[in-house]
Write a protein that binds this DNA or RNA. Sequence first.
DNA 1: TTCAGAATTTGATCTATATCAAAAGACAAT
DNA 2: ATTGTCTTTTGATATAGATCAAATTCTGAA
Lengths: 171, 171
Amino acid sequence: MNAIELAFFQKEYTKQHILHHYGDISTTLYYIEKGLCRIYYVNDTGKDITYGFYKEGDFVAIAESFFTQKPSGYCIETLEDCSLFSIRYNDLIKLTDEFPIIEKVKSHVLQYFLLIATSRIIALQFQSAQQRYNALLEQQPGILQRAPLGQIASYLGITQETLSRIRSKVL
Amino acid sequence: MNAIELAFFQKEYTKQHILHHYGDISTTLYYIEKGLCRIYYVNDTGKDITYGFYKEGDFVAIAESFFTQKPSGYCIETLEDCSLFSIRYNDLIKLTDEFPIIEKVKSHVLQYFLLIATSRIIALQFQSAQQRYNALLEQQPGILQRAPLGQIASYLGITQETLSRIRSKVL
DNA sequence: TTCAGAATTTGATCTATATCAAAAGACAAT
DNA sequence: ATTGTCTTTTGATATAGATCAAATTCTGAA
């Protein structure tokens, strides 16, 4: 535990800070102590599309790039002022060599990301925009107050206008 | 390698065989030597929806249930006569205790599943039915000849009729 | 070969959501 | 307060894809 703690370092970031730029290889895994972050990508028509939101208590990383050390098409940015704990890939590897049990932690993290991804596939496969909105309200209450509408809409796979209408209907 | 080989056992299955029933805890990870399998679930309106197709050379498992040993809402069935290699969860655990490197294999498998899941989220988030169809043709050529249309349609998140029309348009 | 049941296609609507455009609200800087 | 920019809402219309129903084609067992 002590070794793990030593490998992490804490830092403050202002809002709108790019933690990971697309095209780069992900070097860092973050734990959010305070604040809100977002993973997004830019599609072939130039639209900015939110892949996910991450808040205090969550881990954020481009898992695919971090664990494979290949470049990634995603960006991570802070949406609010954040306090983050970070660990670098190299330090994690060293830690894993020293304490093989860390490999199990890695499996756990991956399992966790996979679970989230799977439930989103199901949501996007056959639920209506309204249903996805309701699910978001349940799973991420407060996100609506913290992130701009356009970013939430793209996360849900709908346009900003549609989200605005869904939202007003519910009131 | 020898120990791994010993832990796997080969078996033949006829088509339409249920390898995993929903509600059960996944006990087995399969490697497909020959044939085609499908993971599906039944949604709240009773519709059968394909989560994925798996063919010779692929691993199939309800990863979420297999690795956590919790019940799952998915089923796995064979769509053709299959020759499968299987390993039981308990045997995999024993193997992992004996050879810690197996834990890395587990991470790899999870990474692989995560990668697939991520690319499907992107497809479902903002691509048209036509685009998803084209991508499927590229990534899984031959699936159209091997699986019934309705199952492919639900995989793409569209109805059978729409898939039929898209398909005829391309010809 | 024939025939029943299943799978696929085709056609006619309907509907959820997108698109385009403009108006209304927020907010930050002067 | 006043302005300019950004975000959200509202309105009018268009469209991809759904739904329902019928016609056609395929398949496999007798």
